[in-house]
Structure formats: C-alpha cells, structure tokens
Amino acid sequence: MYRKGYNSRRIRGKLIVCDYLSASVELEQHIPQTVSFSLAQLEEMIGRYSTLYVKPDIGSHGIGIFKLKCLTEGFELYEIVKKKQMTNQYETLTAVYDRINTASSAKLIIQRGVELDRVNGRPYDIRAMVQRKKGGIWTVTGFLVKVGAADKIVTNYHQGGTIYTMNQLGKLQGLSASQTQLRIQTLTLTALKISRLLSEKQSGMHEMGIDFAYDVEQQLWVLEVNSNRPQFGPLKRLDRRAYDRMKRFAASYGRRSH
C-alpha cells in the first residue's frame, strides 16, 4: 500500500467519514446510508434498498467492490477482481454473504446503492479536489468527471472509465452554461462544508478528493471522501489549467507526485 511521504494527514476508513458527515444537519441529506458488513446488516439493508454496494473500508481504484441487486427470486452479485467484472446469481442472502467473505479478506462496509445519472448512456460521478496551502483556507481547485466503462459497476479511470470536464459533461447532457455553472457552485459549496467539517475531526489535513454523484432524480450524493493521496493526474491533458493549480497547492505541502 502507498505511504504518503508528505505533510497531509488523513482520516482512515470510509465508515467513520460517513458517520461524521451523517451527523451534520447540513450534510446528512447527501450521505447514502452506510454500515459495517455483517450478515445481519446485509439482511437489514437489502430489506430497505433494492441495490447495495459492498466496498473495502480502506481502498481505492474500484478494487474489491461488489454490487448486490435484489431480483424477483434470489440475488445478483457483481464483483470487481482487479480489472475484471464477474456476475453470478444466488438463491439466498447467506450464499451472497459467504461468497463475499470468501472473495475478500478486507474490512468491508455496506452502502445504499444510488442509481446514478448518466451521460451517453453511462453512469458518472464527479471528483472535487479540495486543497489548502499551509495556513490557508480550503479551496476547490478543480473537478474531474469520471464516466464508467460500458456495463461496469464502477466509474474509476483505473477500471476503464473516461474523464470529462464539467463543461464537457454539461454540453453532452444538453445543459446551458448557466446550468453547468449552478452545478459547479453547488458542488463547490458542499465540498467546502465537507472539508471544513472533516478537518475539525482530524488536524493536519491539506487535501481531499470528494466523489459526488447525481442520481436519476438529480439528488446530490456524496459517495466517498479520499484523503489518502487523491489522484488528479488524469486532468493533465484534459484541463491543464486545473491540473497546474492542483500541483501548485500540492507542492505547498510537500506533495511532488499526483
């Protein structure tokens, strides 16, 4: 596992981040219900939601993620192994639980599935990069839109996804420039609220990659907050201005790679 050699502390674990954010009156509406992984929790969550995600509590690049769908009879389980996606059906939830336990040795969480908005027929989410220089205020230094590969359950660039800018996304979805700008403003304000709250819980933080998603009804959700070396390298060719800004901020707290 990568170990950071620069000055920016992190909050370790997706579940504790969700707990912090869910406790905020301002932010709780954006946080999908997230619980620790067990058979009892799996039974309770699938009783509430027809689709669930099971993820490593600590992990990235879309590795080790499962998607569970409730069928008329039985269950369908999608899983990512390295860069390969597999699908199997199971008659019982116990069989699903056993399969996940066999396939993963990591500490896992269960998260309510969100039916993501789409562009060109593919689901996407939006990474907001939030940074601050030493002694400075939190600043949203840029966005990248991660569009999933065909039929993949994750949107990650490392799993074959495509990267867009916010303006490209807006144009492809037929939004006006003012509608795209309103989205950017909403994402910016929400990202700053998240960064301020989490940095009160953990001192010494200088960067966060916040993954947002709109669902099919345009409700805004926070899927994940990555404070362990969030990536922005894919922007280098796509949006050099934003990339260079992120690099300048990163260099101020000692980060030399992206």
Rank of each mutant, 00 (worst) to 15 (best):
N156H: 10
I58K: 10
A40W: 11
L238Y: 08
G64E: 01
Q168R: 11
Y78R: 06
Q218G: 00
E224K: 02
C70S: 13
S60I: 09
K55W: 03
V17G: 03
M1L: 13
K193L: 10
D19Q: 15
L197Q: 07
R132F: 03
T34H: 04
D19H: 13
D151T: 13
R196K: 12
I63F: 07
S8I: 03
A23N: 14
R9V: 11
V140F: 05
N226G: 08
F212Y: 06
T190N: 11
R248G: 10
Q41T: 12
A106N: 07
K82R: 13
V225H: 03
M205G: 04
T188V: 12
L21Q: 00
G233S: 11
R118W: 00
Y78E: 05
K67M: 08
P123I: 00
K69C: 12
K134F: 14
I63Q: 04
Q41F: 09
N88V: 10
Q85S: 09
P123C: 00
H158R: 13
I163C: 02
M246N: 08
I80V: 10
F212K: 00
I194E: 00
V216W: 00
K152E: 07
G13N: 10
Y78K: 10
K55L: 06
Y253K: 05
H30W: 05
I65L: 07
V222Q: 00
T92R: 08
A250T: 04
L68I: 08
R237K: 15
I46R: 00
D19R: 08
K83R: 15
I184V: 15
K107E: 15
A149L: 06
R99N: 13
S104E: 07
C18Q: 03
F143S: 04
M129C: 10
L42V: 09
S252A: 13
I11T: 07
N101Y: 12
Q168D: 10
N120Y: 11
T186M: 08
V130L: 06
Y164I: 01
K84V: 15
I194S: 00
Q33T: 14
A177D: 14
G121P: 07
P32W: 08
S195V: 04
K171C: 07
S178N: 12
M166K: 01
L93T: 04
I210W: 01
L172E: 04
D239M: 09
C70T: 15
A242S: 14
S50E: 10
H158Y: 06
Y124S: 00
S22K: 13
E207G: 05
Y157F: 13
R240I: 12
T34M: 11
I31M: 05
I163N: 02
Q173A: 03
K193D: 09
I31C: 02
D215Q: 01
Y243G: 03
Q89D: 09
L15Q: 06
P123D: 01
V222C: 05
T190H: 07
K107D: 13
G136Y: 03
A250R: 01
Q41K: 12
E73T: 14
A250Q: 04
R112H: 08
T141H: 03
L235K: 02
E76I: 03
G47K: 09
E224T: 05
